[in-house]
């Protein structure tokens, strides 16, 4: 019986190297490519015959467009529409990555901390640059010292604000990675129960864990959507902070 963590193993398919760095094509890369391919195909099929009165496929895509547009409108406002393409891509990339990972034998690239952290880190850098570009470095630094706070309190508050700001990419990435990894590990463990216990007593040992496994799979699909949503909405909130600097 394989370890529940074995599903997260990175396996090289094509070995590659550039500037001394390993850039091998792995199962994770394949899963990412499939994510891009699925999103592109999905969009291509949905937007093939555009109509004023949309078809079912076009409606699905337009609904996701409206969903992200509403999310940006609610959290950032009209100024946030500049970042629409980025947030739309981010949401779909993570969502489809999570959902493809639910397929048996497939690979969940969002369950790797380095991937989620990289995305979160780039967002963090981008958001910080937006804030500095929009408001200047001085005003940006004032963000860590809330106005109206007594000066002695600032000694305590500023480090807390800085730590809280710096922990953003960590919390953002760990949330997604931990949810995905925990969910898939749990599914694998319960799947193991079905296999092992089912061999001994079919009804009690096999059917019950199988029912539980099916329910958990449903839950995991919801989590897959929820985590993509949380990632996107937190990105919106960070961008909003950068634009408006409360």
């Amino acid at each position: 019986m394989a370890s529940p963590l074995a599903q997260f193993e990175i396996k090289k398919i094509i070995e590659m190297e550039a500037f001394g760095y390993d850039i091998s094509f792995t199962n994770s890369s394949l899963a990412m490519i499939m994510t891009v391919v699925f999103i592109s195909l999905f969009m291509y099929i949905g937007l093939r015959n555009l109509e004023i009165i949309p078809s079912k496929r076009q409606s699905v895509i337009e609904s996701s467009y409206e969903f992200i547009s509403g999310m940006i409108g609610d959290n950032i406002g009209n100024e946030g529409m500049k970042y629409f393409s980025f947030i739309f891509t981010l949401f779909l990339f993570i969502l489809v990555g999570n959902l493809l990972g639910m397929l048996p034998y497939s690979f969940t690239w969002t369950s790797h901390i380095i991937v989620t952290f990289s995305i979160a880190f780039f967002i963090f850098i981008g958001v910080t640059l937006i804030a500095i570009y929009k408001h200047g470095i001085v005003k940006f630094l004032k963000f860590f010292a809330p106005s109206g706070v007594p000066k002695p309190m600032l000694i305590l508050l500023v480090p807390i604000e800085i730590i809280s700001y710096l922990s953003r990419p960590i919390s953002l990435s760990v949330r997604l990675f931990a949810n995905m990894m925990a969910g898939h590990t749990l599914l694998k463990v319960i799947g193991g129960f079905v296999f092992v216990l089912g061999a001994n007593s079919f009804i009690v040992g096999g059917i019950l864990p199988l029912a539980f496994l099916i329910a958990l799979t449903g839950l995991e699909i919801v989590i897959a959507f929820l985590q993509a949503y949380v990632f996107a909405i937190l990105t919106c909130l960070y961008i909003n902070d950068a634009i408006h600097l409360h």
Binding site: F25, S29, M32, I113, I114
Partner: peptide, 15 residues
């Protein structure tokens, strides 16, 4: 496997 740094560069590159 998530903590194995060997695959980090490849994953970041492809990401």
């Amino acid at each position: 496997p998530q903590l194995n740094p060997e695959s980090f560069s490849s994953q970041i590159f492809w990401l």
